[in-house]
Design a binder for these strands. Sequence first.
RNA 1: UGGGGAAUAGUUCAACGGUAGAACAGCGGACUCUGACUCCGUUAAUCUAGGUUCGAAUCCUAGUUCCCCAGCCA
Length: 567
Amino acid sequence: MSVAEATTPGRDFIRDIVQADLDAKRHTTVVTRFPPEPNGYLHIGHAKSICLNFGVAEEFGGRCHLRFDDTNPTKEEQEYIDAIEKDVRWLGFDWGKHLYHASDYFEQLYQWAEDLIRDGKAYVDDQSQDEMRMNRGTLTEPGRNSPFRDRSVDENLDLLRRMRAGEFPNGARVLRAKIDMASGNINLRDPVLYRILHANHPRTGTKWSIYPSYDYAHGQSDAIEGITHSICTLEFEDHRPLYDWFLDNIKGIPSHPHQYEFARLNLTYTILSKRVLTLLVRDGHVSGWDDPRMPTLAGMRRRGVPPEALRDFVKRIGVAKANSTVDIAMFEHAVREVLNKGAQRRMAVLRPLKVVIENYPDGQSEELDAVNHPDDPALGTRKIRFGRELYVERDDFMENPVKGFFRLSPGKEVRLRYAYFVTCREVVKNTAGEVIELRCTYDPATRGGDAPDGRKVRGTIHWVSATDSVPAEVRVYNSLFNSPNPDAANFAADLNPNSLEVLAGARLEPSLATSGNSPAPVQFERQGYFCTDPDTKPGKLVFNRTVGLRDTWAKVSAAKVSGAKTA
RNA sequence: UGGGGAAUAGUUCAACGGUAGAACAGCGGACUCUGACUCCGUUAAUCUAGGUUCGAAUCCUAGUUCCCCAGCCA
C-alpha cells in the first residue's frame, strides 16, 4: 500500500448522505457521474470532483459514469473530449463501459419536450434575447409573462418541429418551460429548454438545429442513467428546484436522482477558471494546455506530479459546503511525500561554478559509490566519477558568508557528497569582479566522505565532474501569479514574469542522460524533484522541476538579509 | 429591496447536546554524508448578542459578514 492510499479515507457530508441512503434502503447501489463539458482541459478543481464521484462509487461498491455534457456545439471540440478521457484515466479512474454523452439522449430529450408542450408546460417564445432579458425582471422585481406564453399546443408543437427541422435562424425562437415569471428564484422564470443553433456538433454533426440547455439536459440524463447521487458544485444550488421540476413534470421519467452540491476547489496563487485558462493558452502566456505551470492535469502530468499525489491531496482537503481557498503548500506537501518515497537520488548542478582541486593529479580520475535512495537500500548504488575539475552550485559558495552559512567560502572545508572533504583556497574572478572559479584542495584520507580522524564538517554539497557530466536544460517553475489570491477579472496584470526560469547550462551526472521520455521521477539532491520533459531530444536533455525540496536555509538566509537591511 | 448558501486555529477539514481534534503552514529541538527525510515538542479557533439546557460549535431568536443567481454558457 502506498503512502497516499494509506491515508485514512475521508468522511464528509456527501458520503454521510450516501451511507444514510444505503442504510435506509432508498438505494441498493450507488451510481454517480462525472459530467465534464468538453470545452477545455481538466484542471485540479476537476480532480476534486473526479475523486469525489469515482471515489464514492468505489467505496460504496457502486459505479461512476463518465458523461460528456455536450449540449453546446459552439464551444465544444473533439480535442477536449480526447484530452478529458486521457486525463481521467491518468488520474487513476476507470468508467468501464459507462461512457456516455448528453448527445446520446437528444432524441429522448426532444420527445419529452413535446410531451411538456402537450401537457401545457412548455411553449415556444418568439421574443428576442433582449426582450426576454427585459421581461425577466431583476433580482428584486418579478418578471413579466411573454406575449407568446399562451400559444396553443398545436402551434407550439408545430413551431418546435420546425425549429428542429432547421427552418429558423439562430436566436429566432426558443422553447421555454412554463413555470413562474414571478419566482424569487430566477431559474424558475420560464427557463429556456431549447435554443436554435446551426452548428456542427462533434458527435451528432449537423443532425440537430436545436440544442437542449444545461438545465433541461442534465437532470434527465441523470435519470436515464439511473444516477442516484448527482454531485455538483455550489453555483448549481439554486438550479436544484428546476432540476427537480423537470423530473417531477416529465411523464415516464425513469428515475428521480437527487442533486447535492459541494464547494469547488480554490488554490492560492492559482486561477481555476476555464475561461482564464483558455485565455492563457490562446494569448500565449503559456506554451499550451500542458504547460507545466498550468493547474491542468495535463500540465501537472508534464511537470511530473504523480497522480497518486493528486488523489492524496484531494483526500486531505476534504469536501464541504463552505467556500475556501487551500494553501498551495498543502498540494506541494502531497507531491513531495509521494516523490520522496519513490524518486531515486542523483546529483545535478543547475548553476555551475567551476572548482579545480589543485592537489588532485592532472589527468587522473576515479569512481566513487553513491546510494540511489537513502531510505531504500534495495534501490542499490551507482558509480560517479570524481576528477580534478568539478562543478558545484553557485549558491553553495559565498565569498563573504553570512552567519550560519556552512557551505563553501574562502578557507572553509566542506564535504563533496559521496567524495572528499575539500577546502577553498582561492577565489578566481573575471575583470568584472565576478567569481568564475574556485581553487580548492582535497584531503585524500576522506575518500567516500568520512574523515578517519573523526573530523566533522558542517556542510555537504553536491557536485558533478567537469569532464564526465552532461549538459542539460533545466526548467524551474514558479507560480504563474504573484498574488496569493489572483483576480480572475484582471489576471494579466498579476502574471509572474519569473514563472519560468530556463537554466540552459546545467550539468548532470551522466546516469541521467539515459533517461527516456517517460522516466521515473528523480530527486536532484538538495534541490528538488525533476522529470524529463517531452522536449528532450537526442543530444538535448530537458528536465522540469516538479517541486523543490523544503528549503529551511532559504527562509533563514532571507530573514538574515532583510534583517541586515533594516538594522 | 428578491431567492439560494456558508461562517471552528494562519489555511483546509473533523467534532452530529457530553474533554473542541487532525492535516498543512509557523515556531523550537533531536537526528543527518541532502540545511531534505524522519522524530519530538509547541503556538493557535467555535462570527456577534441573547435564550433553552445540569451541559451548546451543535438547538432556538435576532443580528453581522462572505459567496452564488437577472446566458438562447455549463
